[in-house]
């Protein structure tokens, strides 16, 4: 793995002046042209207290790509995903070893403010979790707290349109977000994440609570979103990973040193196509061909 030189902290620092901090411009300029990774994960281990949930993960997430994290339940996919926006900071016992570089900046550097990270790295959760507010207020919540000054109506429309939900809800923006169907709720959550104009969107099994038709909607949507955003998706559905992702990381759980718990390990990280047709690890092959056991 190529070690990327850590750049000085730019916009992630707490001391950033918000007034001049235009979201789109705040992304480092060179990313559009260079091959540089959005995230560079180096030898990452995640602990809950003494328990090491995941160990020694090394992978790179590239710009405007869909990266899938797959593997059996409990192998630490969610745990790894929640490191990318420092969501694990909310768990008192959680801590990491190793490095995650975000556009070359060490995400866990002491000066980095997790709130600034989360404004750039949005998240869609496994279970749709719209706020008990109107559809409009769900979408405008993020921009509002970030101090957005432009036309909120336009922003809400744009986000809902990008999330392929506008036509279904445009006549009832004042209704509660909770009144929508499960699939619509999840698209509302995606719109909500898009509205803060993030750089990356993390999705934790976004379709696991949805029926096949709603799942299809979301998968199509991800292909559209790929043009503007970098997406990392956790799924335990291999077909879904094969359908939507460019890169796939396959995790599994192995009995740990103390023989009492299972620790997640990254088995293989490769182009999705190669992963599913010609995996280099036997465990991957067993899993993708359904012989996992």
């Amino acid at each position: 793995m190529k070690r990327v030189q850590a750049k000085p902290l730019g916009t992630l620092s707490r001391r950033t002046n918000r007034a001049t901090d235009e979201k789109v411009e705040s992304r480092p300029q060179e990313q559009k042209t260079s091959e540089e990774a959005v995230f560079d994960v180096q030898d990452l281990s995640v602990f809950y207290g003494d328990f090491r949930a995941v160990r020694n993960v090394t992978l790179a997430v590239s710009q405007r790509n869909i990266t899938a994290l797959i593997g059996p339940s409990g192998c630490g996919k969610t745990t790894v995903l929640r490191c990318f926006n420092r969501m694990n900071d909310l768990v008192d016992t959680a801590r990491i070893e190793g490095n995650i570089l975000y556009h070359g900046v060490d995400l866990y550097e002491s000066r980095v403010d997790p709130v600034e990270v989360r404004r750039r790295v949005g998240m869609v959760f496994q279970k749709p979790n719209p706020f008990p507010k109107s559809i409009y207020d769900n979408v405008s919540f993020g921009p509002k707290i970030a101090g957005f000054k432009g036309s909120m109506d336009d922003l809400v429309e744009e986000a809902l349109t990008k999330a392929a939900l506008w036509d279904e809800v445009k006549s009832r923006l004042k209704e509660s977000g909770m009144s929508l169907s499960g699939g619509q709720q999840q698209r509302l959550c995606i719109a909500r994440a898009i509205a803060v104009q993030p750089d990356v969107i993390l999705m934790d099994e976004p379709c696991s609570a949805l029926d096949p038709i709603a799942t299809g909607h979301i998968e199509d949507l991800m292909q559209d979103l790929k043009n503007d955003y970098t997406i990392i998706i956790v799924t335990h559905n291999m077909q879904q990973a094969a359908r939507v992702s460019d890169m796939t990381a396959f995790f599994t759980a192995e009995v740990n040193e103390k023989q009492d718990r299972r620790t997640g390990v990254l088995v293989e990280f490769d182009h999705t196509e190669r992963m599913f047709t010609n995996p280099s690890d036997e465990r991957t092959e067993n899993y993708v061909t359904g012989r996992f056991g």
Partner: peptide, 27 residues
């Protein structure tokens, strides 16, 4: 109030205060 609502707010870059005042309290 379910933890998932708080996480939704934090995931959008909300601080504790806005999460409490704008999400938890109304809910």
């Amino acid at each position: 109030v379910p933890m998932s609502l708080r996480e939704g707010a934090y995931g959008l870059g909300a601080r504790k205060r806005s999460t409490t005042v704008k999400i938890v309290f109304p809910a």
